[in-house]
């Protein structure tokens, strides 16, 4: 009988693998009209969800019950159950490129890169409250923590724009550098990836003053903050590099080569970074302790990525998985060759 506790411990130990995390990783394949769903433990593709045209960004709704995916070219929002990877419903909406909910959950703001518009919706009902015509290529956005302001990069206009959500009008625009892409609110400052340079711009959100630049690598794209105040990670698409920044001082702590055009990052509960590699149809899993990475094939031109914590593996798909091969991406505005 004395051995019973040991036996129980042993049994618990043996059963550990079945309790291992089986997080779901959603990767938006912007180039082949599909969403790849990977299981984080096995690294295997467990679903391939066909969508209509071109998906770029995704996020959880404020209630954290639905994963919202924007299909920009199809003018559609998809709402998925993040636990089961099932599409719950779809809604018509104008050209959703980048989007986010305000921290108070009141607004959903969507940028339309192709139509030079920033749309402010009531989050709960998706009622359009205001549509702002803005200069060339509104790309990414970030909110102030009090949900009063939203900041939008204008990729074709070298600028960052601040929009007051109360008046729904711009309060300032400031020149930040060539082709600004991602923007992040971080400790009372805005960090903007300047894609036409090797800098991340530090901007004062109060007046739009450009305070300084942090050298990362050429093609600086977006900065992502790891959970719980951990390091910041900046992606650079020309030099294909991840730059680790100290969250306090913004000093560069490390530089990791990551070939393939690193773009968006999602943080897994185990601390690993899932990074989409835009030009090589792969997603990288980066160990933040060492910077070492393994890569997994996904669809063409992977962009947005999201990790949903999950304990047990996803059961097999109820219907055959639709394989979506790689796409010849049409040059927009031009008649598809085969259909002329």
């Amino acid at each position: 009988m004395r051995r019973a506790p040991f036996a129980l411990l042993l049994l618990a130990g043996l059963s550990l693998p079945s309790l291992a995390k089986a997080d779901l990783v959603y990767v938006l394949n912007s180039g082949d009209a599909s969403i790849t769903v990977l299981e984080s433990t096995t690294r295997e593709e467990v679903r391939r969800i066909p969508i209509l045209r071109e998906v770029h960004h995704l996020l959880l709704n404020p209630e954290r019950t639905e994963l919202v995916v924007g299909d920009s070219a199809a003018n559609e929002l998809l709402f998925l159950n993040p636990d089961t990877a099932e599409i719950v419903r779809r809604e018509r909406i104008s050209n959703p490129y980048h989007m986010d909910y305000s921290p108070d959950g009141k607004y959903l703001v969507i940028t339309s890169l192709r139509r030079d518009q920033v749309d402010i919706y009531e989050a709960a009902t998706r009622t359009l409250l205001a549509r702002l015509k803005v200069p060339d290529k509104p790309s990414h956005l970030a909110f102030s923590p009090d949900s009063r302001m939203v900041y939008v990069t204008l990729q074709g206009a070298r600028r960052l724009m601040a929009i007051d959500l109360t008046t729904r009008r711009p309060t300032w625009t400031t020149e930040v550098g060539p082709q600004p892409a991602g923007v992040l609110w971080h400790r009372d400052r805005l960090l903007v990836g300047i894609m036409g340079s090797d800098q991340v711009a530090v901007v004062n959100p109060a007046d739009g003053k450009l305070e300084r630049g942090i050298q990362t690598a050429r093609g600086a794209h977006t900065v992502f903050a790891s959970p719980n105040g951990g390091p910041l990670y900046a992606t650079s698409r020309v030099d294909s590099r991840l730059t680790v920044l100290d969250p306090e001082t913004l000093e560069v702590k490390a530089r990791w080569e990551l070939p393939g055009g690193p773009d968006c990052i999602a943080f897994a509960p185990d601390g690993k970074l899932w990074v989409t590699l835009r030009w090589v149809a792969r997603v990288a899993v980066v160990d933040p302790a060492t910077g070492e990475a393994e890569t997994i094939p996904v669809g063409r031109s992977p962009h947005g990525v999201f990790v949903q914590p999950r304990q047990l593996p996803l059961p097999p798909a109820p219907v055959p998985v639709v394989e979506a091969p790689a796409t010849p991406v049409m040059v927009p505005g031009v008649v598809p060759a085969a259909l002329r």
């Binding site: 082709q179 991406v329 040059v331």
Partner: peptide, 13 residues
């Protein structure tokens, strides 16, 4: 660089 995605699509094309 704001034309990167478009040129990548063109390369594929």
């Amino acid at each position: 660089m704001d034309w990167a995605e478009d040129l990548f699509a063109w390369l594929d094309f």
